[in-house]
């Protein structure tokens, strides 16, 4: 388990898999998937889990790492992980989704991201972490800037959400630009957030 101030990163186990049906079909997927609207049945989710289980048994140096994000009281909140890890390029493409909208904007995602970056740089010895979001996702764009990612690429009109074209944005963070989790926890005031009386789901 990776322990943060507002969340812990834990194995993406049964409690998380059971929530995938809701998280795939709600607004969380719309935001993380660049306007995607899924209509996934329980059977489709089960088939996807079976495929994951099969693939995770493969020896593959480009396999990702999946964490479940849970609140300090043990509530499963979503997924944070490395969607694609290239040992050859020492490069990690991150993916993230807080599936419970009432936890958006409370610092939970930022706390999870700092834990994931710490793991990515300090345990996996990756040189660069990067991720993609869309230009409609102002919340994630702000988060990227706060944590020190740089906007590297703007793929114009590559995302379609409710009939409107948006851009996919690529953000990158090099290891030498990463000040370490402890420094960012202080800089972003996460410790104060975790102890504030109003902390918790909105």
């Amino acid at each position: 388990m990776l322990e943060g101030l507002l969340v812990n990163l834990v194995p993406y186990g049964k409690e998380f898999l059971e929530r995938d049906h809701r998280w795939m079909n709600n607004q969380a997927s719309f935001w993380s998937g660049g306007g995607e609207r899924h209509f996934m049945t329980q059977a489709m989710i089960a088939a996807r889990h079976a495929q994951w289980a099969e693939e995770s048994g493969d020896i593959n140096d480009e396999l990702g790492v999946a964490f479940g994000v849970q609140s300090k009281d043990g509530t499963p909140l979503g997924y944070f992980g490395i969607n694609w890890l290239s040992a050859h390029h020492r490069l990690a493409m991150l993916g993230a989704k807080i599936g419970e909208p009432q936890y958006w904007g409370g610092g939970y995602g930022t706390d999870a991201l700092l834990l994931l970056l710490d793991y990515t740089f300090d345990w996996l010895d990756v040189r660069k972490a990067w991720l993609m979001t869309t230009s409609m996702n102002a919340r994630v764009m702000r988060q990227m800037e706060k944590v020190g990612f740089r906007l590297e690429v703007r793929q114009r009109q590559s995302a379609l959400a409710d009939g409107v074209w948006y851009d996919w944005l690529a953000y990158g963070l090099l290891r030498e630009e990463w000040p370490g989790r402890a420094a960012l926890v202080e800089q972003l005031g996460l410790r104060e957030r975790a102890t504030a009386p109003e902390s918790g789901a909105k």
Partner: peptide, 26 residues
């Protein structure tokens, strides 16, 4: 094609970590 940005030091190439220049055409 229009240049849309640079993925900095993104891949390993001949002894170094090099950029990738990204393009798009609509």
């Amino acid at each position: 094609f229009v240049h849309e940005g640079t993925l900095r030091q993104h891949i390993r190439w001949d002894g170094d970590y090099v950029d990738m220049e990204m393009f798009g055409l609509l």
